[in-house]
Nucleic acid binder design. Structure first.
Lengths: 343, 343
DNA sequence: GTGGTAACTGTAAGCGCTTACATTTGATTT
DNA sequence: AAATCAAATGTAAGCGCTTACAGTTACCAC
């Protein structure tokens, strides 16, 4: 056991196989360029040594990593999971690896994570939402790292990063419109924090637009903003129900807040949807597990993820320029929404 | 606009600041070794150029990446999220970055992801559970990448990767023991798939042990194994309730399956816990959102994540050898468990 | 046999960065 | 003002890999 203890390198493999490093590199990257015999000998050496290429060196020499990064606000729940899963699957089909970093909805952390991923050689990036400093986009441009934004669209700004997402405002506007159409006049909105979160901002704008559509005053909207979480949703619901006139429908910026709201409603002995209607947004699996099942907005998570991946890959391989796409959402009527009742 | 279009390198910065590359490198890595004036000049050049260090090159030259990787079965739900979050936070405190890869509970994918992370220069790894090929551990050893296993412990095998987790078997044994103590005699277990998943296997073993403890036959356990998911839980519950003697308590391998089971019970018009008790495992947030709130096993997610991070960091900095730790779990009695009732 | 060609394989020049070591600078001391 | 030494900076040698280019072989057609 006088084993060489250092981590084996290409050169070690080459030596053991009695070939040059170039040949080893070839069998690793384009096996068909090497004679079967040599290839096998090298393969054996690789196996014997337990050799694994040093990625850093490879990246440096080859200028591409076949990995794409995704920076998401949180892994704490399923909101981004489905889409990311599809994204990952599509990437995998094309031989790319996905690396995920999360930010906890913190802009500074996001900045750092994006830079970390780029520095680490991500060939491309998936970002959530548009709201981040101009500087970051400049940085990406300078580093020549293509990026695509999902979970949102920005129709107005042609110069920004392309987005493959959906129209948060329009979706919420439709849902709120439907709620109002049912006869609700006193609406409340429990929103995620809007600073740094354009999806939340857009959704609120959607509710206001719907109010305006129906000739109601957006100012009458009872509004509470809260961090993300079940408990936060519960607390916000209690707050909102304490207002007068008491809302007959409580729209929530996402399903998680809605779940918290629903729980609180039960705790308060309120019948849903008899005494108060509650809606969510995202249609994550949770929405169907709740009781009653949650009325919400369905987002094409998987489609979005896959399309984003294909767009990025298409761009990386030079097949097509990156372009935006807007996917459709739909309202999923389940059992937490009904016309305003007694009281 | 005759901007140099190439990505700026250390040398570019050095040239612009009128210093050597060594100096630039120093202001980037140990600013205090550089005169304030120079430092500032370099900083300006960095900013002007929008320079960002090439990670690959840095890794290669410096031999460490300050990043640790985590390979988890799935991001589709909150099971690993809490622990990972804590893991990440602790890493962050020490200047490390976390990179996450998921496997979809597929051993081959896991193998690939682990290698990818190592190749990418992860200084250390967080793994879930013990069940994977010996070869992988050899690989890690050879690459000198320390790893720690979480969500499980393996008391018997001293040679393996150290683990910072909890005793799945014992935890489940206690829960099942409690259920039996309540008077239940007909138990069912809805388990996650056991192949490749030692946590699930251990939990099942725990139920069997509890049965044996009380002098009941482990063979009488109604057992269904299913992939992960709400719907899967529902289906499994229906299967299990079709068996005779009909179980009065249905233990689930995790909270997600339990949530599905609970929904199915409602769909079948079964009162929980009046007609049938249901329990989960993990105590993810979801457990409290369900109605009725789920009786389950609390796992010290955050503690586990943090301790794993600290252990890894301690090892990387040479402060302490990696060693195992077993954390305590506890039974959380909520409202889905009661003594067997009528019927 | 020869020359020509295709198929392999080797040589060596970087990729962008860190860092040991050498050199220069500038205080401080005498 | 010379000597001394610490602080600041520069020089240059790699880190492990890819790849353009050059050199070898092996094989065929003539």
């Amino acid at each position: 056991m006088v084993e060489e203890t250092a981590i084996p390198t290409l050169a070690d493999v080459a030596a053991r196989a009695g070939v040059s490093t170039a040949t080893v590199s070839r069998v690793l990257n384009s096996p068909d360029k090497v004679a079967p015999k040599t290839r096998e000998r090298v393969a054996r050496a690789v196996a014997d040594l337990g050799y694994s290429p040093n990625f850093g060196a490879r990246v440096m020499a080859a200028r591409q990593t076949k990995t794409v990064g995704a920076v998401i606000p949180t892994m704490e729940n399923a909101i981004f999971a489905k889409g990311l899963q599809a994204f990952q699957e599509a990437l995998h089909e094309y031989g790319y690896t996905l690396l995920v970093a999360s930010t906890g909805y913190d802009a500074e952390v996001e900045d750092a994570q994006i830079r970390a991923l780029v520095a680490r050689g991500a060939d491309a990036l998936l970002l959530i939402g548009h709201s981040r400093g101009r500087g970051l986009y400049d940085f990406l441009a300078r580093q020549e790292v293509p990026a695509v934004v999902t979970w949102a669209v920005r129709p107005d700004d042609a110069g920004a990063v392309p987005s493959i997402g959906f129209d948060n405002r329009q979706a919420m506007r439709e849902l709120a419109g439907h709620v109002i159409g049912l006869g609700h006049r006193h609406l409340a909105l429990i929103s995620a924090e809007i600073a740094q979160n354009d999806r939340a901002a857009e959704r609120r704008a959607g509710v206001r637009a719907a109010l305006a559509d129906k000739g109601l005053s957006p100012d009458a909207l009872i509004y509470v903003e809260t961090p993300y979480g079940f408990d936060e949703g519960s607390v916000a619901f209690a707050q909102v129900m304490a207002k007068r006139p008491r809302p007959t429908a409580v729209l929530c910026g996402n399903d998680v807040l809605a779940a918290g709201a629903l729980r609180q409603a039960r705790a308060m002995g309120l019948d849903v949807p008899g005494e108060v209607s509650i809606t969510g947004f995202d249609d994550i699996d949770l929405a169907q597990i709740l009781h009653p099942p949650l009325t919400t907005v369905r987002v094409p998570h998987r489609d979005m993820g896959r399309q984003a991946a294909l767009a990025l890959i298409g761009h990386l391989t030079g097949a097509a320029p990156l372009s935006s796409a807007t996917l459709d959402t739909s309202i999923v009527l389940r059992d937490t929404l009904a016309p305003p009742g007694h009281t």
